[in-house]
């Protein structure tokens, strides 16, 4: 299976590339449409600030490419900032429109919930609580935790699109969202040990079944 990792100059692509290779995938890291066209699925990574990422996607016309990919039901996985970009809008730095594949808005953790202060970023291993499973996700992992590192999170997410969340001081932090061929993971599956590997593997099986 061939995965196209979208290279738009945001973040470290080495780890995710290695994780996919360990699962037997051929991986191309590129911004070229023709090269991406020849892959079985797309992966949108990302670390950094939302407006910057959005601008870079637009500069390379990758935003249009992703819109087209979504309308053609091509499998797409967004990780971390790559997931946030799939939502309607983000408040990071300045309000910026996202790709709009998922309903909802990206907001900053306030650092305070019901009078209790908490750490920002949300950094470390947190338990994924399953809401409902998309067809590609089987219930076969014993590990429960995945590795998060982020200061912004998705809010007002549609219940039907929320696959799993983590509880951070009473805040429901969307961990996995899914709608048709598009999936988002807020945590880093490539850094999440056993469960991370399992989730990537299941997603790839889903791609295969497409």
């Amino acid at each position: 299976m061939k995965i196209g990792v979208i290279d738009y100059g945001m973040g470290n692509l080495f780890s995710v590339e290695q994780a996919l290779k360990r699962l037997g995938c051929e991986v191309v890291v590129t911004a070229h449409e023709q090269v991406l066209d020849a892959t079985d699925a797309l992966l949108l990574p990302g670390v950094g600030a939302f407006p910057d990422a959005r601008k870079r996607l637009a500069e390379k016309k990758l935003d249009c490419y992703l819109q087209k990919a979504q309308s053609e039901n091509r499998p797409l996985l967004g990780i971390c900032l790559g997931m946030q970009l799939l939502f309607e809008q983000s408040d990071e730095v300045t309000p910026t429109k996202g790709l709009g594949f998922f309903k909802g808005r990206i907001k900053r953790f306030s650092g305070m919930n019901e009078g209790q202060s908490y750490r920002v970023p949300h950094m470390g291993w947190n338990e994924l609580i399953m809401m409902h499973r998309p067809t590609w996700l089987k219930n076969g992992a014993s590990a429960k935790h995945v590795y998060f590192v982020h200061s912004f999170y998705a809010t007002d997410v549609e219940d039907s699109e929320l696959v799993a969340y983590a509880d951070y001081y009473g805040i429901k932090v969307p961990g996995i969202v899914s709608n048709g061929s598009v999936t988002g993971m807020q945590f880093h599956p490539e850094k999440s040990g056993e469960l991370g590997v399992y989730l990537l593997e299941q997603w790839l099986k889903g791609v295969k079944a497409c």
Binding site: S15, H188, K191, E194
Partner: peptide
């Protein structure tokens, strides 16, 4: 670092 990142699935 490169070798570790190729093998390890934790940060």
């Amino acid at each position: 670092v490169r070798q570790t990142a190729s093998t390890l699935a934790i940060p």
